[in-house]
Computed example of a mutant assay.
Amino acid sequence: MSGFGTNDLTDRDILSYVALGDSFTEGMSDPYPDSDSVPNGRYRGWADRVAEHLTDHVGEVRYANLAVRGRLIGQILEEQLPRAVELSPDLITICAGGNDIIRPGSDPDAVAALFEEAIAGLAGTGARVVVFTGFDTNWQPVMRHLRGKIATYNMHMRAIADRYGCDVVDVWSMRILDDPRAWNWDRLHLSPEGHRRLALRVCEVLGVPLEGDWNEPWPPAEPRDWRAARQEDLYWAREFLMPWIHRRLTGRSSGDDVSPKRPALEPLRPDH
């Protein structure tokens, strides 16, 4: 844990918060109600939701979200970290390295070295820094083989967090997210309900009082026959897996030509 008291974030009139990362932090698959289309519409996501929760306890929340979908950890270091240091916020969240880890041939030790470089730079700002472990992919047959690499990276991140006094959101242990309803149809990004639950968990780690339980059991699922499950698998492979593989082979990213949605620290309006 960092040296901040549990109520430190809410015992002030103005709070500045900067979120760094990739699609996980950008909020993909959680569009705002006023979004007419995606990806041209506005994504919400757990980080926006955390900022919204903070407005219930702080006079003014100034919030920037520098995350961009598809970003590798080296790109986050190069593009987002200098801006976050420049903004000198009170609170920083960073989730980075997931896109590296899921790529074939990636080395979690090398990714962790870059992660520590990022944390060292962010810790120097004096901000409260929050990091996230990777998800447990055991429930996903297609990504189950990545568990070992993700677990190795998680152990590195925990050790780094200890060295620099960061808070840790242990997403790996959130068994409530093993339910398919926590995920978008692409099986890689959280659903709106998944983002809502994760925001509650982050607030819990930060010591921010709120209503709601991130670990509330899911209602009974509707029965599905094997034919429907098979059709969903085929649709997923055609609409997500094959385009993802094609981008890897051609060196493109879903975040090409995408800019951060909140590049500056701006007050969060009452209507968010």
Rank of each mutant, 00 (worst) to 15 (best):
M1T: 02
G5R: 10
D8H: 12
I14V: 10
L20E: 03
E26N: 03
G27P: 04
G27K: 13
M28L: 14
M28I: 08
S29V: 04
D30L: 03
V38H: 11
R42V: 07
G45N: 09
W46F: 14
W46Y: 13
V50G: 06
E52Y: 06
H53G: 06
L54S: 09
T55L: 04
D56L: 05
H57C: 04
V58K: 03
V58M: 00
G59R: 09
N65L: 02
I73W: 06
Q75G: 06
L77Y: 07
Q80M: 01
Q80A: 05
P82G: 13
P82S: 13
A84I: 05
L87I: 01
P89K: 06
P89A: 09
L91Y: 03
A96W: 07
G98W: 15
G98T: 13
D100L: 01
I101C: 10
I102G: 00
I102R: 14
S106F: 03
P108G: 13
P108I: 05
D109F: 08
A112W: 05
A113P: 00
L114F: 00
F115R: 03
E117V: 00
E117H: 11
A118I: 07
A120P: 00
G121K: 15
L122A: 08
G124R: 09
T125A: 11
R128Q: 15
V129F: 06
G134Y: 10
G134C: 13
G134S: 15
F135M: 15
N138T: 15
Q140W: 11
V142N: 15
R144V: 06
L146Q: 15
T152L: 04
Y153I: 00
M157A: 15
M157I: 13
C166W: 05
V168H: 14
V168Q: 13
V169F: 08
D170L: 07
V171W: 08
V171F: 07
V171A: 08
M174C: 02
L177N: 07
L177S: 09
N184T: 00
D186R: 01
D186I: 01
R187I: 03
H189C: 02
G194V: 02
R197I: 09
R197Y: 07
L198P: 01
V202W: 11
E204P: 00
V205I: 10
E211F: 03
W218I: 06
E222I: 05
R224G: 04
A228L: 11
A228T: 13
A229G: 11
A229P: 00
Q231M: 15
E232V: 05
E232W: 11
D233K: 12
Y235G: 07
A237Q: 14
E239W: 13
L241Q: 13
L241Y: 14
M242T: 12
P243T: 12
W244T: 14
I245G: 06
L249E: 14
G251Y: 12
G251V: 10
R252S: 15
R252V: 02
S254R: 12
V258T: 08
V258Y: 02
P260E: 08
A264V: 07
L265C: 12
E266I: 04
L268T: 11
L268Q: 08
L268I: 14
R269N: 12
D271Y: 13
